[in-house]
Amino acid sequence: MKLFDFIQPATIDEALSAWRPGAAWLGGGTNLVDLMKTGAMQPDAVIDITRLPGLDRIETLPDGSTRIGALVRNATLAHDRDFAAAYPMVAEALLSGASGQLRNVATVAGNLLQKTRCPFFQEPAALCNRRDPGAGCDAMAAPGNSAILGWSDACIATNPSDFTVPLVALEAVAEVRGPQGMREIAVADLQPLPGSTPERDTALEPGELILALRLPARARSFAAHARYLKVRERTSFAFALASAAAALRIEGGLIAEARLALGAVAAKPWRLAEAEAMMTGKAPDAALFAEVAEAVLAMANSPDGQKWKIDLARNTAARALSMAAAGTPARIPALPASPFGTRIEDPQHV
């Protein structure tokens, strides 16, 4: 790891003024410290923001929206009873990510800003336009679990976050403070698509700091029918091959409003607004969901021409909608977001 200056500001103002080009904010560190070890990130200065006051609260605002401080840990948020009741698919997504240890440390803002897990990004010896503009893209010759939406010839990486997928579906907003003062950015706009500048992997300007996330009051109206589904190569502690957050507001047996976003398919969580519109006013059933998923994913294509991931994303979207229609379970399943959500009974064994 490259040597760096370690700075521990006591206030937000101090933090903002301590920032300089080449510096990195340190929250939980679960992503930054890892990438500093591989050498993919080499900040000259690390600014530890974990002691900044007032950023660790979960509040309900007078308008019914929920404000989550940037430093709230993933586990704290997921296990907050009120929060999980109001936004169950966000809690389920959080609990399907990483491990218990990592969730205890990782902050919500850090989760939003985490880097792609593309192995070619993580390894400095590999060619990667995202890490080293203009270098080339080794992933293109070995795409594996790459993007199928919104990728470019410069970069086919995906965003690995589970948390942000339901956030985007629920129209969450990030409150950001920088040298120019406060502004708000929709979580959906936080990660730009790669285009020809994949190195620009955040909409934040240099020196800007996320202070909080806000979920609108309206997002609570989906609580009865909201699920996150994540397909993985092992039962737990794995990144998604494809995931989907699906939420329905069902009134009088019909879908009054639907929300749907996919994860692990693009450089950002992919909201499917057209699909949402297609479902409005219709009865929730598997045939509708299959039709919707089919239509929307018609625009997907994979860099290597392989179809399996597109099929998987489509099936995941349709299934997540079916699960949402069936209703949010009273308690988050033992295996959060897993297709194997229902208990397997085996009396002889634990």
């Binding site: 092992r234 737990s236 502690f237 794995a238 295996l335 397997i344 085996d346 064994h349």
Partner: peptide, 10 residues
């Protein structure tokens, strides 16, 4: 990948 605890059932 190698198996994690959740992969080992029954």
């Amino acid at each position: 990948h190698v198996p994690v605890n959740a992969d080992v059932h029954g």
